[in-house]
Design a protein around this nucleic acid. Structure first.
Lengths: 344, 344
DNA sequence: ATATTTTTTTGAATTGATTCAATTTTTAAT
DNA sequence: ATTAAAAATTGAATCAATTCAAAAAAATAT
C-alpha cells in the first residue's frame, strides 16, 4: 500500500508538501496541487489515519457505550449518533455492555477504549460498575451522557424526563375516563425505574385516584416479563383494571400479546400505553400509543455536546432536557387512523 | 496520558523491555515483570494501539459493511459479528450504506476504511455501487461476504439459500392444503429477489399448482409496502387467496396489519408466512411463522472465515451455505403454543 | 575460578504521518 | 533591474509504539 513518501517521490515534491496537500491544500500552488493529486490518484493512496493519530493526538473517533444494539431503541439511538458523528468527521466505535459485568471489566483493559477523542455513554443501567466506568473514563477523556436522570449534573448530559413522560401517559389515560390503572415498571432495584413510577403515582394522586398495590409490577425490560405480569394480574384479580401504563414499549407488547391471545379487547376492555416510541410501536396491531422520546435528536445533540466539549476543553458542562411527546394510537383509541396511510 | 517511556523510567528498565512485557511477557524475568507491572498500574498506562498499528501493520480491527443497523435482521447480524470478533481480539467498525450512493462514495474516500485488517460485507441487495465497493475493497484487504447468492464464488462467503428457504415455506403452506397462494417479493429489479420468487414458483409447480399473476407483488422491504400490496389484492380481487408467502418478516407484518385491521381471520381465512425470523416475528400477535435464517451463526462463521483468511493469506476461498429452517407459529397454525411459555 | 551457553535486557532504527523553522521561489514595490 | 515582502516548499525532528542485533547478566559446565 502506497505511503506518503511514494506520493512525494512520484509528484517530485517533499513529504511535507504532500502532508500539506492532505491537511491545508489551500497552501499549495495550483500547479503542485494538481501534481500531488495526480500522484495520489495514480498510486491509489490512502493516508494511514493511525500515523496521523500518533502525531496529532487526535483520533477523530468517539466511543459509544450502550447496553446493547439488539434493542430497537438503542439501535435507533446508535444510528443517529453514528450518522451525525460521521457528518462531523468522526467515526464511532460501539461498545455494548450486554448486561455483563465481565465484559464491562474487559473494556477497562481495552487499550482502544481510552484512545478515542471522547465518549458518549448511553443509559447504562444504574449499577455500580457502570457508574465506576463513567467515572474512570471521564478523568481521561471528555464524556457526554445520555441518561434518564434529569438531576445528573456531574457531566454534560442529555436527559429524558421520564417522570414527566409517564405522568403524561398516565394523565392521558385518566382523561379518557380510566380510573383503575395498572402499572408495569422496570426492575425494583433500579433507582431510575422509580422516577417513572413516581410519574405514574403523581398523575394518579393529582387526579384523586389510588395506586393499588396489586396493580403494580416490577419487570425486566423484555416482552416475556410484561406478558407474565398481566397474566398474573388477570388470573388472580377479580377486580380488573381498565388500563395499563408501561415503562417501555417492549413491556407494552408483552401485555398486548396476552390480551390479544386471551381475546380481551384492546382498547375497549383494556387500554395499553407504552414508552419510547420504537418503530415497533407503529408496526404492532393494534398500533401502540406511547410516549415519544426524540431518539434521533438525542443522538445528534449528544454528538454536538461532545464535539463542543472537544473544541473548548475547559468549557462548562451543559445539561439538556429533552421533551417527550404523547403519541396516540390504537392501543388506547380505536379511532386513530394508521399514520402511514396518509403519506403514500 | 502515560506512554511507554514513562513506564520504562519508573520501572527502571528500557522501553524494549516494557514492549516485551506487553507482547511476550514470558520473556521477562519474574522480578522485572513485577516491576513493570507495578509501574503500569501506578501510571494507569494504556498502550496506544495506533502506535503499534503503524509499526506492525496490524490493526486488529475489521470493517463490517451492511445496508443499515435499524433493521432488526442487520442489528442481530452485526451483534453476532461484533461479539465473536471481540472474543478473537478484533474490534469492528460498522459502515452502513443507508441505500445512499453518496454515502457509499464517501466510504471510498474514507481513509479508515482501507486501514483495517479485513472486511465483512453483508451484500444483500443487488446494487451496482455496492458491488463495485466489494471489488475495489477486495483488491486491498481480505473480504468475507455474507450474501444470498449461493453461486457466488469470487470470494469467501456465507450464503443463504433463499430459493430453498422460500421453497420450504411455500411447500409447507401447500401441505396444509392451501392452493391459492399469493406472493409478496422484493423489488422487481433485484436479481436476488428473483431467487426467492423462483423458490415459490417451483414449489407451486412441483405441487401442480398455478402461480396466478395477480397474486404476485413486487415490494420494497418495508411494512407499508406489504400492507399496500395485500390491500390492493383484497380490494380488487373477488377470488381471494387463502395464504400469503412473503420474502421477509417485515413484509409479512405489513400484510398481517392489513388483515387484522380488516378483521380477516389469520390463519383461518388467510395464512401468512415470513422470512428471516427476526425477533419481531415472535413478538407479533399472532406470532409469525417464518423461515429461520441462522443469523447468529452466520455472523460467527463470517468472522471465522475472515480470520482464517488473515492467518493464511494465500488460502483458497471457501463457500459456506447456511441451512434454513421452517418455524411454525400462529400466523399459519392456530394451535402452536407460545414458545416462551415453555421456558420460564 | 573460568569458560561456555542460555537467558535477559538494551537502545537505536523503524513505522507513516505531522510540524515548523529554515530555505527557496514567486510576487509586488521601488 | 533590484529589493522587499509574501507565498510556497523543504526536510529533519517528532509522535508512541515494535523490532532485533548487540551487550549484559545469569545459569551451567568444565
Amino acid at each position: 500500500m502506497a505511503v506518503i513518501k511514494d506520493v512525494a517521490k512520484l509528484a517530485n515534491v517533499s513529504v511535507g508538501t504532500v502532508s500539506n496537500y492532505l491537511n491545508k491544500p489551500e497552501k499549495l500552488k495550483e500547479s503542485t496541487r494538481i501534481r500531488v493529486q495526480a500522484a495520489i490518484d495514480e498510486l491509489n493512496f490512502h493516508a494511514n489515519p493511525f500515523a496521523s493519530n500518533i502525531r496529532t493526538g487526535k483520533t477523530n473517533s468517539i466511543a459509544v457505550i450502550m447496553p446493547n444494539i439488539i434493542n430497537p431503541f438503542f439501535a435507533e439511538l446508535y444510528n443517529s449518533v453514528k450518522l451525525h458523528a460521521m457528518t462531523n468527521g468522526f467515526s464511532t466505535i460501539l461498545y455494548t455492555t450486554e448486561d455483563d459485568l465481565d465484559l464491562l471489566e474487559d473494556y477497562f483493559t481495552n487499550e482502544k477504549m481510552f484512545h478515542v477523542d471522547g465518549a458518549i455513554f448511553c443509559y447504562v443501567d444504574e449499577d455500580i460498575a457502570a457508574g465506576n466506568l463513567i467515572n474512570k473514563l471521564q478523568t481521561k477523556i471528555p464524556v457526554a451522557l445520555i441518561t434518564d436522570d434529569v438531576n445528573y449534573s456531574k457531566n454534560s448530559s442529555i436527559a429524558i424526563d421520564t417522570f414527566q413522560g409517564v405522568y403524561k401517559s398516565t394523565s392521558y389515560l385518566i382523561s379518557l375516563g380510566h380510573k383503575k390503572i395498572a402499572y408495569l415498571g422496570g426492575p425494583k432495584e433500579a433507582r431510575r425505574a422509580k422516577e417513572k413510577f413516581n410519574g405514574f403515582a403523581r398523575a394518579m394522586s393529582d387526579a384523586g385516584l389510588d395506586v393499588i398495590g396489586d396493580y403494580v409490577f416490577s419487570c425486566t425490560y423484555d416482552m416475556h416479563s410484561g406478558y407474565r405480569a398481566v397474566r398474573e394480574l388477570f388470573m388472580q384479580s377479580s377486580d380488573l383494571p381498565t388500563a395499563v401504563v408501561t415503562a417501555s414499549d417492549i413491556l407494552a407488547i408483552g401485555a398486548l400479546k396476552f390480551f390479544l391471545r386471551s381475546k380481551i379487547d384492546v382498547p375497549d376492555k383494556i387500554a395499553v400505553i407504552g414508552f419510547d416510541n420504537i418503530l415497533l410501536a407503529r408496526m404492532y396491531e393494534p398500533s401502540i400509543s406511547t410516549i415519544e422520546i426524540p431518539i434521533k435528536e438525542m443522538g445528534t445533540q449528544a454528538v454536538d455536546l461532545l464535539i463542543s466539549k472537544l473544541q473548548a476543553p475547559g468549557s462548562k458542562n451543559k445539561q439538556i432536557i429533552m421533551p417527550s411527546n404523547l403519541i396516540i394510537r390504537n392501543s388506547t383509541d380505536k379511532d386513530m387512523p394508521l399514520e402511514f396511510e396518509f403519506n403514500d
